[in-house]
Amino acid sequence: MEIFNNHKRLFITFTVMFLILTLGVAIGPALNNQNNNEPLPNSKPLTKEETAGKLVYISNGCVGCHSQQVRNVEIDKVWGSRPGIAADYARIERTSFLQNTATLMGTERTGPDLTNIGQRQSSDAWHYLHLYNPRIVIPQSIMPRYKWLFEVKDYPEEGDIKVEVPDEYKDFPKNKVLVVTKDGMDLVAYLKSLKQVKLPDGTPDPIFLYKQKQIASNESSNGSTEAPSQTGPDGAQLYAANCQACHQSNGEGLKGAFPPLKGSKIVLDDNPEIMVGIIMKGYDAREEYGVMPAVGTNANLTAEQVAAIMNHEKSSWGNNARKVTADEVKKIMDSLK
C-alpha cells in the first residue's frame, strides 16, 4: 500500500482524520454552545470585588479540590436545588488577556461543591474563620489554611474587618488583632456570590436522575403521625450535614460567631414556631453573632427532615425538651409560605 511507503500521504491522512474528528467533538459543540446559550435573566454579572475574588480563587487553585457543578443525579441534590445547565455558565468569558475562561467546574471533590455556597453559607464570620483555619469550624477538615489572606495588626484601622479567633486557635500575640486583607474580603465576596439562579417563570427545573430507594421509602412513611421513630430521617446525620459547620458537633457554637444550641431558649421552647421559622427563613437579630442563612429553604429540607433535626437538637448535649412531630412542623412551614 502506498501509505506504508509515502510519509507525506501518511501525515496528511492522520492529520486530516484527526482534524475532522476534532471539529466534530470539540470545536463544533464548543462554538454551538457558546453561541446558543444566553445568561439566565435572573443572574447578575459579578461586581468588581467579586471579580477580584474570583481571581484569588483561581490563583490559589481552589478548583483542585472544589467543583462548581451540580450534576443531574440524585447524589448531587445536596449541592443545589436543581441540576446545572449550560446557561448557568453562559456569562463566564475570558478572564483576561493572559488567562483563559474559567468555568471552574472541576473534576474532583476532595472538598464540597461550591456552586451554591453563597446560599448555603452566607455568614462572613464563618468564611473568615474557615479560611484562616478551617479546623476552627470543622475539626476534621483537611483544607489548607489561607493565612496570607489575613494580617496581624496592633489595632484595627478604619474599614478593617476584625476576625474573632477562639483563644486556643490564636497563633499570634493575644494583644494584637487579626484583620482580613483586601484579597480575603474579595474572595469571600466571590464565594457569597456563588448562588444557583432560579430558572425564569414557567420553566421547570431539569430532573435529578437515579432516584434512590432509600429516599422513596422515606416518602412512603410520610403518612405516619407518630413522632419520628427509627424509620424516619436520621436527625444526627442531617444536623452534621446542615448545621454542624457553625453550631459545632457539641452544640456549643463558637464564641463571637455562632450561638450555642445547648441550653438555648429557642431550642428548648415547647412552641416550635420560632425555631422552625429560623431554620426555614434564616436569622439576623443578634449583633454579637453572624447571620444565619435560610438553611432549611436552601437545602430543600422536608418537614420530616426539619423535625428530625429539631428533635436531635432538643434531645442532645443535655437538652431535654418536648419533641415535635412532622405534622406540626409541616403546618408551621405551610403558614410561613
Binding site: 476534532t22 470539540a26 470545536i27 459543540p29 464548543a30 457558546q34 446559550n37 463566564i92 483563559n100 474559567a102
Partner: peptide, 21 residues
C-alpha cells in the same frame, strides 16, 4: 501540537465551550 493550539485559542472558549475544549 494541534491539541495545544486548539485548546489555547480563545475563539470557542466562552461559557460551557471552555469545558468542552
Amino acid at each position: 501540537v494541534i491539541i495545544a493550539v486548539i485548546s489555547y485559542l480563545p475563539f470557542w472558549q466562552d461559557g460551557i465551550g471552555e469545558t468542552i475544549i
